[in-house]
Nucleic acid binder design. Structure first.
Lengths: 340, 340
DNA sequence: CTGTTAGCGCATTCAC
DNA sequence: GTGAATGCGCTAACAG
């Protein structure tokens, strides 16, 4: 029972040729209804399962798209993956998930492996260490379309699917200001990454528009892990900076900051209000009226996959990639309660 | 440039045979060091990439494990996937992620597809609709090892990697009682699923141990979506049931319940305390001293993958599967603050 | 409509 | 240590 039946087995059993069986199994129009039925019956009887490896080798496809993210358990990425998987599944594609864990070295190996697996397309959100894109050339050389999502990449020939970081940063800060905050700290990520610069610039722009002086001691850059948020918050308070609001460039650091505030018995949001980028899990708990970009991961995942599938189907990578900014307003404006 | 180089191309360029190239590339001991170097150099020069599809077809493996979960964006599963991916990556395996979305029909198709892809192993957390396991027999027939995680399956020949649902349910309820709660509601899932029965039984046991009368009107069964939690909470309060605590059998419903409480300006945890199973994102925000099974997903993912890899390497599915209960205490006992 | 032939790219016998 | 031959399971010409 160990050797699985092949199309030859069912061909032999039926006294026909394996190519006919193949056609029947693929529902080719050039096969009699009658033989199709016979083939299908025999296949079921023998417990036949098509070998996709062989099929794909022959067709030179894999029906698979490779996804590289820093870490699947991060809220934004897990919802993005949900969107990716759903869209891919509908189109008959599988999804291979890989985590760079924010390490460039790992990202390199992953991409190499995915190319060897002959994935039909690649969806990447680069690691924080990825400041140069040479390791992605193997994809281009192998004619594998590649779409960046969430984390921006500026080189021509590639497409990006992003949220509007500047506007979202602006909106988040504006929201805090409208809630009565005047001294707003900002937790930012590595300034080499455009997304963090953009969020930071949005923050600054909101301050300026509201005639609030920008103070650089209110801005902390880190890798935005939970502990970074915790420590940043701690440092700010220990330095006696009088803040009443925090805009964190991601949700993870925001959670760390909240943890510290809770420990210090500082009330959220009455004493210090916090808005985190992509902070769906926080916001629902802290202030249900403050709806954030809950759906952004999902939306971006779907959008990016849709675009990638276009390239895959066309079998052609565009000369110059396009950049799609997905509309995901950070904060819905019907937010009702005043923080102060 | 479109036709990628094969071992034949590099063999021809070097005036040797492709089988030697193959051996050299696989670092076979039966090839001269010198030829290995030549081959490797030429491979790099031509930009050769091994075709895993062909290699795997020949070797009749895929270096891939299939993972089926209800939904990747749920916190527990995304951290489980993180653990799965890390463990698989270390062993040289890729991970294909699929979502059943809690639908049996979809789960069937997914498993079928994964078998066709000749995955080397399967990791499944069945959908809520999965009450019978016939659709998984194709895996067994194809000799593909299968390990269940989180959601239990009782049939012999399969292994399970689980948390201790009874004990965790007991601990969660006990925790609420120690915090001063006496009237504790329980949001449960479909009673057909053992995990929910076990959590429920743990809840009951804790009540009994503390001489608290069990009231069945305090127990609500649902599919534990966010909206279910919201509505359950609403119904309880509208029915004027005097509760001061809730133990939710998952985190998603707990979030829904909290949303309703927030809207009603009911304080958490002062008026009503909430503990949700696997509710890492909630607990950190509500009560940082209340550490929950944050790591359980990760731990279970790693454990399950380790076990599966054992089976894969042995190329043999054990006659009777084993059940591993991963130690993940729901609540650390150093929890400091009193709720009331 | 069906059979024949010929590979997809690689790894593994078996010779030498 | 290397080469020649064979086939993993399937699909795509090309005939007929």
């Amino acid at each position: 029972m160990n050797n699985k039946p092949t199309i030859h087995d069912i061909a032999k059993a039926l006294g026909i040729d394996s190519s006919t069986v193949s056609r029947a199994l693929n529902d080719s129009p050039r096969v009699t209804k009658a033989t199709k039925v016979k083939v299908l019956e025999k296949a079921a009887e023998l417990g036949y399962r098509r070998n996709m490896l062989a099929s794909n080798l022959r067709k030179n496809v894999s029906n698979t798209i490779g996804v590289v993210v820093p870490r699947v358990s991060r809220h934004f990425f897990s919802s993005a993956i949900q969107g990716i998987e759903e869209t891919a599944y509908s189109a008959g594609y599988n999804v291979i998930i890989c985590q760079s864990l924010e390490e460039l070295e790992r990202e390199k190996k992953i991409v190499e492996g995915l190319v060897e697996k002959r994935v039909d397309g690649l969806l990447i959100s680069v690691s924080m260490e990825t400041l140069n894109y040479d390791h992605l050339k193997v994809a281009k050389n192998s004619n594998i379309p590649l779409v960046f999502f969430d984390r921006h990449c500026n080189i021509p020939g590639y497409s990006n699917v992003l949220v509007d970081d500047f506007e979202s940063g602006f909106n988040a800060t504006q929201h805090l200001i409208e809630k009565g905050c005047r001294n707003i700290a900002h937790f930012s990520g590595p300034q080499e990454l455009e997304i963090y610069r953009n969020r930071f610039n949005g923050y600054k722009a909101a301050l300026i528009k509201n005639n609030i002086t920008f103070k650089k001691e209110y801005v902390v850059s880190s890798r935005l892990m939970e502990q970074d948020g915790y420590i940043s918050m701690k440092n700010i308070l220990e330095n006696k900076l009088q803040i009443d609001g925090v805009f964190s460039a991601n949700d993870v650091a925001a959670i760390g900051a909240m943890k510290y505030l809770k420990e210090q018995q500082i009330r959220i949001p009455e004493d210090i209000a916090i808005v985190g980028f992509s902070n769906e899990p926080i916001s629902r708990v802290i202030d249900p009226s403050l709806t954030t970009i809950d759906q952004s991961g999902l939306k971006i995942g779907k959008e990016a996959t849709g675009l990638l599938l276009e390239y895959i189907v066309k079998k052609q990578i565009p000369e110059k990639g396009k950049t799609i900014i997905v509309d995901t307003s950070l904060i819905e404006r019907q937010s009702s309660k005043k923080i102060k």
